[in-house]
Amino acid sequence: MNLFSDWTWFHRLGSPRWFYQNSGRWLPWLSVVTLVVLATGLVWGLAFAPADAKQGNSFRIIYIHVPASFLALAGYYIMAIAGAVGLIWKMKLSYMVMKSAAPIGAVLTFIALFTGAVWGKPTWGTYWVWDARITSMLILLFLYAGVMALQYAYHSVDAASKAGAILALVGTVNIPIIYKSVDWWYTLHQPATIKLTSAPSMHPDMFQPLLVMIAGFYLFYALVLILQTRNEILRRERNTSWVRELAAAKMTTNTIANEAKSE
């Protein structure tokens, strides 16, 4: 109950300084765990999982394609929610999270599109089809590009943050509509020659590494988002005394280490 009556935890969470200092403590652990999970999933999926009966070994692309698609879409919602929190509670930190989430999501969307195209060649005989899911993914990439371009277009940090948040929210309202309409459009025009069957029910031996990869991608996303947000904090708070002291402390420890090395 105390959690809800007392809002100090919420404000502390919104403090860039608090976030920066605490995330610094978690980062080494998070990066080690991410690396281990991703490496496990990669080796398992590439070398140990059995090949698909119909698609052969090309199906192994699923181990990066599906997690990347998951995170590409989830990333947009994370970005939009961060923007909404910024607009409602005027929380500086959440605008920084929003700005950092955009390029990460765009790269993951690109990965999903690229791996999908490469996977399409051996399975359907072509790199690109105007399939509903592929088209929606492409539109998602455009939506990310819009938010990023808007962030870079404004000189004023405040205007850029608010404009980006509004655009992200408008996009969020639109994503289900876009997905449904593209789906409907595809069933209308579905070419007879190419038949995309939905993923066959996967054997547990194939499915387990996929779960590991999805977990790994989520961890990776969190890790990169924290790294980018920390940079954004330094960029926006560079004139505060705590950032200056931090920079000074970091530099002196570095120079001491260098001198020790040279001796």
Partner: peptide, 10 residues
Amino acid sequence: TLLVMPLYMP
């Protein structure tokens, strides 16, 4: 154009 085009799809 970049911002609005994806929203025009439906």
